[in-house]
């Protein structure tokens, strides 16, 4: 197990290094770093000072070392628009996005697994077909449009739920969360459902395919031959086996949910880091874009690492086999 963790850590480190090289190359080699790092409104004198300060006149490898050095120190530049460190700005918006993404995942799992199980156990029933058609639609519908239609239906026409924003928040561990207040929860429902839609379709498909496969296994028949109740067979014997692929894929998808929250946050004016990214892109606030990118890369790597560890906990064959090749 220790060897396994160490090996995965090493792999993650390689990806982080590779990505920071790519980001560096993107800013310094492809784009013009002066445009990226210095505000377009700066005058000639400020420009010269900034170039010297940032070491943009130095050779490439020296610049890279400086970039890495300041990035490790948490310095990713200062926002042109807000005048505060870019990294701090991104991190400050992170909890809102995380909250939204986790809620979306929760919705996707809480609805997707039962629906997928049902569709898998009774593939030819009317309900099974309806569920599958729904999941195909879920894949085809563009997220932002669904979001707008949700607002139209539930906020504008019916007036049940608020159309945007985070609502009232409460503090936990020094961070503001929406899910702790009733008003915040009401604000959370629509965006979470919107963001969940795509993953919900995915979970349904995975759960259905898994169920269909597992239900035919001898060990399910053996479980029936032992006289177990259907609830136990479906809830333990089948569910635990289909959870492995679902958890793996979902874990890997958490990153993409966080990335996709860019869209949902824009539709619902949710003040997370995705909204920050879009605002920054539109306002040419590039240090913030870079900070977002690096934070996201790091997040992806950490998520992949955690998924692998959880995966090994769920599947005894891997846990005790001493890791994968």
């Amino acid at each position: 197990m220790l060897v396994f963790i160490l090996r995965r850590l090493a792999q993650s480190a390689v990806v982080v290094v590779a990505m920071s090289v790519l980001v560096f190359a993107g800013i310094f080699a492809i784009g013009n770093p002066i445009d990226v790092l210095i505000s377009p409104e700066a005058d000639e004198f400020e420009r010269a000072a900034a170039i010297a300060r940032l070491g943009l006149d130095k050779p490439m490898h020296e610049q890279f070392l400086r970039f890495v050095d300041s990035a490790l120190g948490g310095d990713l530049g200062t926002s042109f628009v807000h005048g505060v460190p870019a990294l701090g700005l991104v991190l400050q918006r992170f909890p809102a996005t995380l909250e939204l993404a986790l809620c979306a995942m929760l919705v996707a799992v809480a609805l997707g697994i039962p629906l997928g199980l049902w569709a898998g156990l009774k593939p030819d029933s009317l309900a099974g077909r309806v569920i599958m058609t729904g999941s195909i639609l879920g894949f085809s519908l563009p997220t932002f449009w669904v979001g707008m239609m949700l607002i139209m239906a539930f906020a504008v026409t019916l007036g049940w739920l608020p159309a945007g924003g985070r609502g009232e928040t409460a503090s936990l561990f020094g961070v503001q969360w929406s899910f702790l207040t009733a008003d915040g929860l009401a604000h959370l429902i629509l965006p979470a459902v919107n963001l969940a839609l795509f993953k919900l379709s995915l979970v349904i498909r995975l759960a259905r395919a898994g169920t269909r496969e597992v239900a035919l296994q001898d060990y399910v028949k053996f479980a029936r031959a032992k006289g177990l109740a259907p609830a136990r067979i479906v809830g333990v014997h089948i569910l635990k086996n289909i959870m492995i692929p679902v958890v793996t894929v979902l874990g890997l998808e958490l990153g993409s949910v966080i990335a996709f929250s860019v869209v949902t946050e824009s539709v619902f004016a949710w003040p997370g880091m995705g909204k920050l990214l879009i605002d920054s892109i539109l306002q040419l606030d590039r240090p913030v874009v870079i900070a977002y990118l690096l934070v996201t890369v790091l997040l992806f790597v950490v998520i992949n690492l955690i998924v692998d560890l959880v995966y090994s906990l769920l599947d005894p064959r891997i846990r005790l086999g001493g890791g994968r090749a």
Partner: peptide
Amino acid sequence: YQYMLSGDYWVSLFPGLALLVTIVAIN
């Protein structure tokens, strides 16, 4: 988007349906 909040749904709804139909047909 801006008109939708005041209940004028059609500017967003119909292009969205067109998009949906196109995507579903291709799929």
